[in-house]
Amino acid sequence: MMARRSIEPLVWILFSVGGVVAAMFVPVLLFLFGFAYPLGWLASPSHAHLVAVVGHPLVRVLLFFLCTLCLLHAAHRFRYTLYDGLQLQHLQELILLVSYGGAFVGSVAAGVLLWQFG
């Protein structure tokens, strides 16, 4: 299989997995930490409990994947939105740098934060 050395299928599969992860987990997390706890709809969990949860190695790994996959998903989709919606194909290099570069920087930040957590 000589022709098959394109990176596109891999990027697409990461985009898709990211789409699934975002659809499954972001609504509930945003509901809890964006509304329910800050606005007092639900009693917010104690700091100690959340530190115990996020501090668990497995949770940290899963959260890292959540962040990375969601960011890659967003970057990929945003890139094509600029092509389709604003016809900016001629700015391809800049768009690639901003979208995937941004996702990369965000993923590194997530990795550092979760690695040093606790």
Partner: peptide, 21 residues
């Protein structure tokens, strides 16, 4: 397709939570 921007915002929001914790 624009939902992508808001998913990126959520990740930023969530990382601020982790940082604060």
């Amino acid at each position: 397709e624009l939902s992508s921007i808001f998913i990126a915002w959520f990740i930023y929001f969530f990382l601020r939570l982790v940082h604060a914790l």
